[in-house]
Computed example of a mutant assay.
Amino acid sequence: MLFYITAAIVTAIDQWAKIWIRNSMEVGQSVPFWDPVLHFTYYENSGMAHSLFPGYGRLFALFAVLFIAGVLYYRAKGEIKGRWMDLSMGFLVGGAAGNAIDRILFGKVTDFLEFTSGHGILNLADVAINIGVLLVIVSAVIGIVKKTGSS
């Protein structure tokens, strides 16, 4: 249940934030939010991370849908299990779904989180994907520690 709740919450919050940005800002507009660390800067990305491969938004949606299907398949087979993996896969699937929705509906994603440290412009789905990757690493480390401790 943790997996489904996490994925649903991540997707919902991501979509709500993107709708709010699209309805309250103009493309290119930037507003300091947590100065000097974070600005809300409305950007539309038709490619992938760092605007690579522009114009292929719908193709990347297909990859996201295939990723989500793969996670659901392996969860059903019982190969993805444990609280940490449920949580990490929930973040990854929620992030993938959030960006896939944008790509399917608009052919591009709405980005708006611009960290002034110069790491590009992200959205909450991107942040969730990063959190999911970190949690996969945490899960792997915990698994190794448990295995080593029981030997």
Results as ranks from 00 to 15, higher is better:
Gly143Arg: 02
Leu134Lys: 00
Ile9Met: 02
Ala61Tyr: 02
Asp126Trp: 05
Ile68Tyr: 08
Gly90Leu: 07
Leu62Ser: 09
Val136Asp: 06
Asp111Asn: 00
Gly107Pro: 01
Ile19Arg: 13
Asn23Glu: 14
Leu72Lys: 03
Pro32Asn: 13
Ala12Gly: 03
Leu105Met: 08
Asp111Gly: 04
Gly55Val: 10
Leu92Thr: 05
Thr41Asn: 07
Gly47Ser: 00
Ala17Asn: 05
Gln15Asn: 11
Asn99Gly: 04
Phe63Glu: 10
Phe106Val: 06
Gly57Met: 10
Gly47Tyr: 13
Ile131Gly: 07
Leu113Trp: 06
Arg58Gly: 12
Gly82Thr: 09
Ala69Glu: 09
Phe63Gly: 11
Leu59Thr: 14
Glu44Ile: 13
Gly132Lys: 06
Glu26Cys: 03
Ala96Pro: 07
Lys108Trp: 05
Leu135Asp: 04
Val145Thr: 09
Asn123Val: 07
Ala64Gly: 08
Gly28Trp: 15
Met48Trp: 14
Trp34Pro: 00
Phe63Ser: 12
Ile129Trp: 00
Gly55Asp: 08
Met89Gln: 15
Asn99Cys: 05
Phe60Arg: 08
Ile129Val: 11
Ser117Met: 14
Ile104Phe: 07
Ile68Arg: 03
Ile144Thr: 05
Leu87Thr: 11
Leu122Gly: 01
Thr6Trp: 03
Asp35Val: 03
Asn45Arg: 08
Val71Thr: 09
Arg75Trp: 04
Trp20Leu: 10
Ile80His: 10
Val65Pro: 07
Ala97Cys: 07
Ser24Lys: 15
Asn99Tyr: 07
Leu124Tyr: 04
Ala8Trp: 02
Lys147Arg: 14
Arg83Glu: 12
Met85Asn: 12
Ile101Phe: 02
Asp126Leu: 02
Ile121Lys: 05
Asn45Ser: 06
Tyr43Leu: 14
Val10Ser: 07
Phe53Gly: 01
Thr148Gly: 06
Trp34Lys: 07
Lys146Arg: 15
Gly78Glu: 07
Tyr4Trp: 12
Lys18Ile: 04
Ala96Ile: 01
Ala49Arg: 12
Ala97Gln: 05
